[in-house]
Design a protein around this nucleic acid. Structure first.
Lengths: 392, 392
DNA sequence: CGTGATGCTGCAAAGGTTTGCAATGAAGTA
DNA sequence: TACTTCATTGCAAACCTTTGCAGCATCACG
């Protein structure tokens, strides 16, 4: 594909000389176990010996082989992070938060992308199982039973999905959907569409449940559209359908779809929010950059990443896998606590929602809008809505 | 942080029973070496035995321990992918392409994010060194000499940077910058600003070099602004500076900065492209979604990911590391070819560039623009510009 | 001087897999 | 029948590190 080879030289390079603990031992005149201890239990070795060993190691450029170490300790100090779609801007903040949290605890994170493919998810868990101490499963698309089964192979923490018996980190999208619907109803919308996401998405089910209830409570009619791909394309593809359905407001599965929908509606000559109001979910960076700026349910992705890592490590520390003692298949039960954490969401009102057909002229509930330089909700200060604490 | 614990149960789960090759051997009544061969060299084992072993393995849920295998073969079948910033939408397509290419060759990809931090880059290479067969370094920020030094520890392929002696995948941003400047000059701009990126970025230097030359050739004045953070914030932060400088067009280091700049200018009441034209680099998905849609230099990120993986694997296959024979520190030179591949870029003209102060009224060179439903360059068909083939 | 404690180090097994070599048996050939 | 060849399987070493145990010397104390 249109590429040109600029240079192609062949060079004699020194081969990667793998320097092992043994080399260091020989160089510093001690036994390998002493070298090992110098690194993994320094307090057990004579300070003089220690500095000598360290000097030799430094000299030779020795680095402990983590794979070999893992083989015997049973801990790799890695954690796997399986993501439905890296290209979805929802995930990067989660990834970064998880990585930073892990780094603080001397762990490394390996990220893998599944392209929303359940099969790839399963494969990846298998592939990662022996190379990490645990796996974070973000917005998995496979079945609950498969997840449970996989959890016997490697410690799992599930994000954005509820699996009984497994530690989960959830975002309260039910609450978010409710807030969104209430916001729309308050604006005078009585005919609202819910743009569904992937069929196997827990978030999807949760939103539908809550939105349906909230619509009924508010006296509005809810039209369900979906399932759809949770992408910009998935959103723009249903623009026509939305137009035909005659609703005055739409709650989309996520921001990407909401943005795609706005694009699609724009192409059809339908104005947002003048003719149709649109609400997204996630509050990705992008939602602040489009015109109109998107009203959306902000999900605490960073907190989710941090929490998930914490839960995994906590669970992990309690039960070291493949420990030395398990000689002849000791199948002793391990007592472990599986907590499920629910994180709150916040409705951020920007410019993609406006008064609907039943808007009461008095007491303008609607957020100010228009092409003004600044939106009501500044990036730093998301507008908290409907502050109902989640029941414990 | 605003989260509520929903459930917290403790359950007796069967411990993760690590089933090894030995268990399978016992169950199927053969020696472990036969089991090993069943998986790694099936043609060497009797078909009958094979099916029996496979059945037992399936039964017991056996999975080869890749770490242990790597310990002896010296190949992990993993490759590391170190990325400057996952949140930059430039990278996901590259990551996905690399992953897909790797998967085809039975390799797994571990992605790690460095937050544009050179120190983190070095640490990550060290951490990955023993767990992967090679590392792809994407847009590294560390020094060339450090990269060379690290390359002795683990095979490296560098993306978006030229390091002599190492295989590199480059995108011809020089050509891209030239096309962009020529495009702007053609539109009648004579005073152009170049929004620089990170100081240690190869792309940055390359763009400056090419843009300077192209501006001189076109009789335009080029103002250098930077270095800046390669993000949306970095772009919006210099909006005022751009306004003060009085230029009529800007070429930004990347799309993110271009979009941030447009935002910033908008806040200052400066209209794009009426008062200032803006060109980005990368052609991220987002650049098609903002208003105005962004004129940009499209970089072949997918191709870069694929190519990089290919180069790594090719180099890797030639020289198996840590092979068995290297008993007493055999430091034999390995002959390896280090190619450098340059991928072409394309200018995609959209709506963020328009006629400048010196535009000739006749022969309207400018791309059509305005709020029309469709932009001139449809997503699928990027407008190729200045088709100069790169000199070999 | 004997006893015990303490601090440091060496020994060797273990972890799960691969692989060169040897052993076995059967089949083919002279 | 004797010899060769081939297919299949077992044996055991090796990869690099950790760690329980034992050995040794030193020191304090009674």
């Amino acid at each position: 594909m249109g590429h040109t080879c600029v240079t192609a030289t062949t060079s004699d390079e020194g081969a990667a000389v793998p320097v092992t603990i043994r080399d260091v031992a020989r160089a510093s005149g001690v036994h390998i176990s002493t070298v090992s201890r110098t690194f993994s239990a320094p307090h057990l070795v004579n300070p003089e010996t220690r500095v000598r060993v360290l000097a030799c190691a430094e000299d030779l450029g020795y680095r402990p082989n983590r794979a070999a170490r893992a083989l015997i300790t049973g801990r790799t100090h890695n954690i796997g992070l399986i993501i439905a779609d890296i290209a979805n801007p929802f995930f990067p903040p989660l990834i970064k938060a998880a990585e930073s949290q892990a780094r603080h605890r001397d762990y490394h994170v390996f990220v893998a992308d599944t392209n929303e493919d359940p099969t790839a998810e399963e494969e990846l868990v298998h592939a990662l199982a022996k190379q990490v101490d645990g796996v974070l499963l973000c917005s998995p698309r496979m079945s609950n039973s498969l997840i449970e089964q996989l959890s016997r192979e490697v410690p799992l923490v599930v994000v954005n999905r509820q699996v009984t018996g497994l530690p989960c980190v959830l975002m309260d999208v039910g609450q978010g959907a409710r807030s969104a619907i209430e916001h729309l109803v308050g604006l005078g919308h009585r005919s609202i569409a819910l743009l569904g996401g992937p069929r196997s998405s827990w978030t999807n089910r949760e939103m539908r449940r809550a939105a349906t209830a909230a619509a009924r409570a508010g006296g509005a009619e809810l039209t369900l559209l979906g399932p759809n791909a949770p992408t910009e394309v998935g959103g723009s593809a249903v623009a026509e359908q939305v137009q035909r359905s005659g609703v005055s407001a739409v709650l989309a599965y996520n921001d990407l779809m909401a943005i795609g929908l706005i694009e699609g509606l724009d192409a059809l000559g339908v104005r947002v929010p003048q003719e149709v109001s649109v609400v997204g979910v996630d509050d990705i960076t992008l939602s602040r950059l489009t015109r109109p700026k998107l009203t959306t349910v902000a999900t605490p992705t960073g907190a989710a990443g941090r929490t998930a890592v914490d839960m995994l490590l906590q669970q992990d520390i309690e039960s070291p896998r493949g420990a030395r003692g398990s000689g002849a298949g000791t199948a002793l039960g391990v007592r472990r606590t599986t907590a499920q954490v629910m994180l709150q969401t916040d409705l951020v009102i920007r410019d993609s929602t406006g008064p609907g057909p039943y808007a009461r002229p008095a007491r303008p509930l609607a957020a100010p809008r228009g092409p003004g330089p600044h939106c009501p909700a500044d990036p730093g200060t998301p507008t908290a809505a409907t502050g109902d604490a989640v029941a414990s």
